[in-house]
Every structure is written in structure tokens, then in C-alpha cells.
């Protein structure tokens, strides 16, 4: 456990080195949030209520989504694992007397913890400053949001871990990442809230893990009960996907490590 805490701290410190890059990403997330929000405001200006969403709800989801980019790494960066599989350094990782999945998870949670303070909070503050957001007064709902964000980080890691693990079979994960970085934002409700998708498409996307990254946390914040059980149902949905992805990751790790052939001395 102490080792994992140290890895967590290293992940946190590593990303805190790039200060200008962090500042730049807040600006980028803020700009994209503002553009998306203004487009949706124009849409809701033409039609004030769409599938139960108001303009305020949509803008709130837009900024929550932009705030979640840094912490769930939905647009990347990929885990270093993919690159280490390709160049063989993964052999070193496998020698460590620490669980493989846990090692990478601890490191990524460190990254997420730094992103929470340095990107998520400032980006949401930009949204608060520029637009009217629909924020709950109920502290319970804020607590539910905190849990939802934590679970979103786990789901985000679970997905990226699987993308990286594909490297054991494909050697080069760039193709997988390219597809992932376009499917993730679209299927999660970040490019456009899922409530604005055609109903059959939205119904399918709501069963996939990506919805747990943005759409479900947004609905928990907005207090909408789409899943049975309201916020609890949403959290359960995220928890089930997080557990499934991590279990799949662990099972595939066991299979993958049997394939490892490290070339040369």
C-alpha cells in the first residue's frame, strides 16, 4: 500500500511540472466550453425545452464535460503502458513486486488528482463566471456528484488501460488510440449532450461505458432521474462499468503477460 501511495504521489508530482501546459489547457477547455455553450444557447433559443433539458441544463453539462476532460483523460493522454509495450520496457514493469493493474491505476489516480485541482476546478469556474449554470442547493447532490466524478475517473482509467493493453497483441496502439479519442468524446455526451441525439442512438449509447464519463455525472448534477433510482441508479451504472472494465483489464493482463517475448539481452 505504501508503494502505491508513493506511485500516486509521483504521478501527481510529474504532471504538476508542466505549469504553462496546464494553464493552456484551461484556456482551451474554457474556449471550447464557451463555443459549445453558445451554440446550445442558440438551439434552446429556438426551442426552449428538448427532452426535458433547458438551456441552463445544457450549458451546465457543457462545462461539466469540459471540466472532466482533464481528469478522465477522455481525449488522452494514453497511458505510458502502450509505448512501454512497444519498446519492451514493459518487461521492467512486470518484474516489479506490485500488482500490474494497481501500479498503473495508482499512477493514473495521481495524474487525475492533480488534474482535479489544476484543470477541473478552474474550468468549471470559467463556466460559472461566463454563464448561468443550473447548480443544485442540496449538499447531498454535490456529494453524489463527487462520487460520480471519482467513478468517472475509474471508468476512464479502465478504458485507457484496455486501449494500452491492446498493444500486447497489436504492438502499435496508435490506431486504437485514434479511434478511442474520437469515439469517447462523441459517445460520452461531451461533443453534444446525449439528450439531443436521436432517441434510438441515445438509447444504445446509454448502455455503453462512455456514458459513465460525462452524461451520467451531468444528470446526477442536474438531478435528472433517467436511470431507475435517480442518482443512486446513475452511480450504480458507473460502478458496474468501472468494475467490469477493471476486471476485464485484470483478466486480459494475465493472458497478455504470457505472450510477452522480450527480444535480446
Amino acid at each position: 500500500m505504501r508503494v502505491l501511495l508513493a506511485v500516486f504521489a509521483c504521478g501527481l508530482r510529474r504532471y504538476s511540472t508542466y505549469r504553462v501546459a496546464t494553464l493552456s489547457s484551461i484556456v482551451v477547455n474554457g474556449v471550447f466550453g464557451a463555443v459549445n455553450a453558445m451554440v446550445l444557447l442558440a438551439v434552446f433559443d429556438a426551442r426552449p425545452r428538448i427532452n426535458g433539458y433547458t438551456a441552463e441544463d445544457a450549458v451546465t453539462q457543457v462545462f461539466l464535460a469540459q471540466s472532466l476532460i482533464g481528469i478522465t483523460a477522455i481525449f488522452g493522454p494514453p497511458l505510458d503502458l502502450g509505448g512501454r509495450i512497444r519498446d519492451g520496457q514493459v518487461a521492467m514493469d512486470l518484474l516489479r513486486p506490485v500488482g500490474f493493474v494497481r501500479w498503473w491505476l495508482a499512477q493514473d489516480l495521481g495524474r487525475a488528482a492533480f488534474a482535479l485541482l489544476s484543470r477541473t476546478a478552474p474550468t468549471f469556474a470559467v463556466g460559472l463566471a461566463l454563464f448561468d449554470l443550473a447548480l443544485p442547493a442540496d449538499p447531498l447532490r454535490w456529494a453524489a456528484l463527487a462520487a460520480a466524478v471519482a467513478l468517472a475517473v475509474l471508468v476512464g482509467f479502465g478504458l485507457r488501460y484496455l486501449y494500452a493493453l491492446a498493444g500486447f497483441w497489436l504492438m502499435d496502439t496508435r490506431g486504437v488510440n485514434a479511434v478511442a479519442w474520437l469515439a469517447g468524446p462523441f459517445c460520452s455526451g461531451m461533443v453534444l449532450p446525449l439528450v439531443l441525439f436521436p432517441d434510438p442512438v441515445a438509447a444504445v449509447l446509454r448502455t455503453l461505458p462512455w456514458a459513465a464519463l460525462v452524461q451520467v455525472p451531468a444528470e446526477i448534477l442536474l438531478g435528472r432521474t433517467v436511470l431507475p433510482g435517480g442518482a443512486a441508479g446513475g452511480l450504480a451504472y458507473q460502478a458496474v462499468w468501472a468494475a467490469l472494465l477493471l476486471a476485464l483489464g485484470a483478466a486480459l493482463t494475465a493472458r497478455a503477460t504470457r505472450r510477452v517475448v522480450v527480444q535480446g539481452g
Binding site: V39, V43, A46, G175, A178, L182, F186, L196, F197, P198
Partner: peptide, 23 residues
């Protein structure tokens, strides 16, 4: 993949116009 990356933006625009006649 590059085609898909910009394709989803176009798709989002089409979805938006599924709800309104004009912006």
C-alpha cells in the same frame, strides 16, 4: 480515423438541426 474525427462534428450539427428548423 481522421475522417471520423471531423465526421462526428458534422453529425452533431445534423443532430442539432433535428430539433430546430433554423438557428
Amino acid at each position: 480515423a481522421q475522417l471520423g474525427a471531423t465526421g462526428v462534428e458534422l453529425l452533431a450539427l445534423l443532430f442539432v438541426f433535428g430539433h430546430v428548423d433554423a438557428l
